[in-house]
Amino acid sequence: MCESWISQSRIAASVIGLTLLTLSGCADPGAGSNLPPLTKVTGTVRFQGQSVEGADVTFNNVSAGYSANAKTDSAGRFVLTTSGKEGAVPGQQLVSIRRVDVIDNTPPGVDPTAGGIAPPPTINWIVPQKYSELATSGLTAEVTDSGPNDFQFDLK
């Protein structure tokens, strides 16, 4: 049981860490005015034919050193931003898509910050975990200056 809790805690920590990394991007957040030209990028995420709401989408242009991020709406649509500005740096992109529900299993009245012991959270992967990592998703996109740069991700 302890190993299971450690494993689930590591997954939760990884999800939180990756989300923070994704939100911060790879470039200097203060470099908004120093960004290379951006191109509008939109798209849709579906899993097993259904729109995925609330998915975190990351496009990472490794050669330029910039990441663009978005969250899908109720129709699974997204519009990427880089350092708070709409668009992505053109070029070949590695793509990750993550959507999880983290369920707090702490019983009512238990305060872990005061020494109470709570069971580990339940991680419910809405989109399979392999898509959440740039290295394992197998997803790529080519963002071009001329567009249209509207990408459809139909995940299985």
Rank of each mutant, 00 (worst) to 15 (best):
C2T: 15
T122H: 10
P120K: 07
N105G: 06
P29Q: 10
L21A: 15
T106P: 08
F78E: 02
S14F: 11
D111Q: 13
P36K: 01
T122A: 13
K130H: 10
G49Y: 07
R77P: 10
T22A: 15
A141L: 03
T39V: 14
G30H: 14
G54H: 06
E53P: 00
K85N: 09
L21D: 15
T81M: 08
R98L: 11
M1P: 09
T42Y: 01
T113A: 12
D101I: 14
K85L: 06
L134V: 10
F59M: 00
D150Y: 08
F78D: 02
P121H: 10
L134S: 09
G17P: 05
E53G: 02
N34G: 04
T22G: 12
K71I: 08
L35G: 02
F59T: 00
A64Q: 10
V57R: 07
F78H: 04
L155Y: 05
V52E: 05
I117F: 14
P148M: 04
Q48C: 00
T136Q: 10
T22C: 02
N60R: 12
Q129D: 15
P29G: 08
F59P: 00
P148D: 11
P108E: 15
V15G: 00
W5G: 02
E53V: 01
W125K: 05
P90C: 03
G91A: 10
P121Q: 08
N124M: 07
A31M: 05
P29T: 09
T113F: 13
V52W: 00
T19I: 00
F151Q: 07
C2W: 14
Q50R: 15
S7K: 13
V15H: 09
V100D: 11
V110E: 05
T113R: 14
L35K: 01
S63I: 09
A114P: 03
E3F: 12
P29C: 04
A13R: 09
V143F: 00
N124K: 13
T19W: 09
T81E: 12
G147P: 06
L35M: 06
T22N: 15
P121V: 09
I126P: 03
K40R: 13
D111V: 12
T58I: 06
Q48L: 08
V79M: 07
Y131F: 15
V143I: 00
A70W: 00
